[in-house]
Design a protein around this nucleic acid. Sequence first.
DNA 1: GTTGAGCGTT
Length: 344
Amino acid sequence: MTQYIQVAEIEHDEPVEIPSEDDGSLLVSTLAAQFPGACGLKYRNPDTGNFRGVRLSEGLLYPPDGVWGSHVYVVVFPKLQPAVTVPERSDEGEIHYIPSLCDNKRKGDNELENPSAKTKRLEQKKCTDLIVLGLPWKSTEDDLRSYFSKFGDLLLTQVKREPKTGQSKGYGFVRFANYDSQLKCLAQRHMIDGRWCDVNIPNSNEMNSPPSNRKVFIARCSENITADHLRDYFIKFGEVIDVFIPKPFRAFAFVTFLDPEVAQSLCGEDHIIQGTSVHVSSAAPKFPAKGAGERRDGAGVEIGIGTMGDGTGIETGTGSIEIGIMIAEVGIRDQDLPVEGILT
DNA sequence: GTTGAGCGTT
């Protein structure tokens, strides 16, 4: 018959009573329902003062000596080793000296906190948007929020819909404020409104970007994001020397930084600007451009048009225009250059 | 009003 087992998240914390199965064993999934991400239990052995682990087999925890008794058990969570617990993407080969992506701090303001390098790396691991697959058609942003907030504070909830009908496409995105929330969330499946849903790091976050460029590509811009918004937002990471938004609206932009390091450090990240989650990636094209400048390595010719003076690139307005052609190890984005009509 | 693998109006 069912026993109730006292379990606390940390020792001396207030315990929660968790039901066993009829045979006395405890499903890890039952445990995880109260303590998301939990993978085991331990308890203090009164004889030695040491912690003792509870036996785990096939997703079931078994009571020591056959009875759970009146111990207060303590939840065991997976060690925070991202390489093991999280499906890593290729964008993590280097340490990012970023205290937290989510509060958007950068080098220069992190010297005082975070003593050990190892801790630092863990704490600094960035939160990305997470894709939630398999949502019920009726699930809303509010439903996502109320479900996922048990893992921690949320910075974004989004259900993707058909623009015309508003009908859900059955998936959405969430983003946590803290990386441990993200880890816990990724470690399990989710029952949302009667359906099992999967949470993953979206494939669209893959960043196999080639090296150094001061210009980054800002994807998923919404129409209400202006050049000033972008400049004001990104200035906190380093000096912004150009912002380019195509007209008419094309849902992307370019931001150029003075320091290529800054540009590179932002690649692969998601940022929330004017309530929209935008994605930063290298301004180099994913595929070689078609046509004249094409090369097998994706490099090509970049044609720049701009006014003289501050060197910040394309601007509008009157005045003399300088046309320059620069051979560079940068590819051409097709979006970059419908310029034939202007070269007169 | 239906559906059930996917990847966000480059």
